[in-house]
């Protein structure tokens, strides 16, 4: 899990932002083969102007956590943060307590079988602070993906954020059944949408194929 946050970095359109220009001190920047076969980061090729308000938010997080996180993008109304699973709890707590974000809008899993990882993306927003109403923090973290998930003995694990953001409760249950990511500490890790006797792979993983396709 050491350097997996780099190859995560969902690269923005090259014309948009330059997050890598910040002193994030990548520990071991190994350009793992990405699905899109794209160089990992083109630092400071062109200094496009970043939106100031969003840059300010990302700077606060960088200032606090330094090289534990990677800012994957800064664009209008969105700040993308990649963090490994050891630190996701601390970062989320900081986002809630210091930056006034108060609820999670969406939790999506993304399966990367080539990296042998599953990414879980939290979109965190704020109702109570009017200046943050249009802002979202896109917090992404990754778990190692085991090949043959056995129901009841899940090895793909992430810490839950439910004790920080109560609103992730059903979202994490959905990610659990659709991707087989077990959230340790979640009080209610049951299936939500799938039938109780579902005995196949988690259906939104890439190796679960639709018949006839």
């Amino acid at each position: 899990m050491s350097a997996n946050t780099e190859q995560v970095s969902i690269e923005e359109k090259p014309a948009e932002e330059k997050p890598a220009a910040k002193p994030v001190a990548k520990p071991a920047a190994k350009p793992v083969a990405k699905p899109a076969a794209k160089p990992v980061a083109k630092p400071a090729a062109k200094s496009v102007e970043l939106p100031a308000f969003e840059k300010n938010i990302s700077d606060k997080i960088v200032e606090k956590f330094g090289d534990k996180i990677v800012v994957s993008f800064v664009k209008e109304n969105r700040v993308g943060i990649n963090v490994d699973k050891e630190n996701v709890h601390d970062v989320a707590r900081f986002i809630r307590d210091e930056l006034n974000y108060d609820h999670v809008e969406s939790v999506s899993g993304v399966d990367y079988p080539k990296d042998k990882e599953i990414e879980v993306v939290y979109h965190i927003g704020s109702y109570s602070d009017p200046s943050l109403a249009s802002q979202l923090i896109v917090l992404a973290t990754r778990a190692e993906r085991e090949e043959n998930p056995i129901p009841g003995k899940d090895a793909t694990k992430l810490p839950t954020l439910r004790d920080i953001f109560y609103s992730v409760e059903f979202h994490e249950r959905e990610v659990f059944e659709m991707f087989g990511v077990y959230f340790t500490g979640h009080p209610d890790n049951r299936r939500l949408l799938l039938p109780e006797d579902w005995a196949d792979l988690p259906p939104l993983r890439k190796d679960f194929a639709i018949k006839g396709r």
Binding site: E12, A36, E105, S108
Partner: peptide, 26 residues
């Protein structure tokens, strides 16, 4: 799409905010 890219857009629907998170790999 161009390269590995992601976008999250949301609108106000009849039942509240409706967001769509698209991850594209080109």
């Amino acid at each position: 799409g161009k390269g590995l890219n992601s976008v999250y857009k949301r609108v106000e629907s009849g039942r509240g905010s409706l967001g769509c998170h698209i991850v594209s790999d080109g």
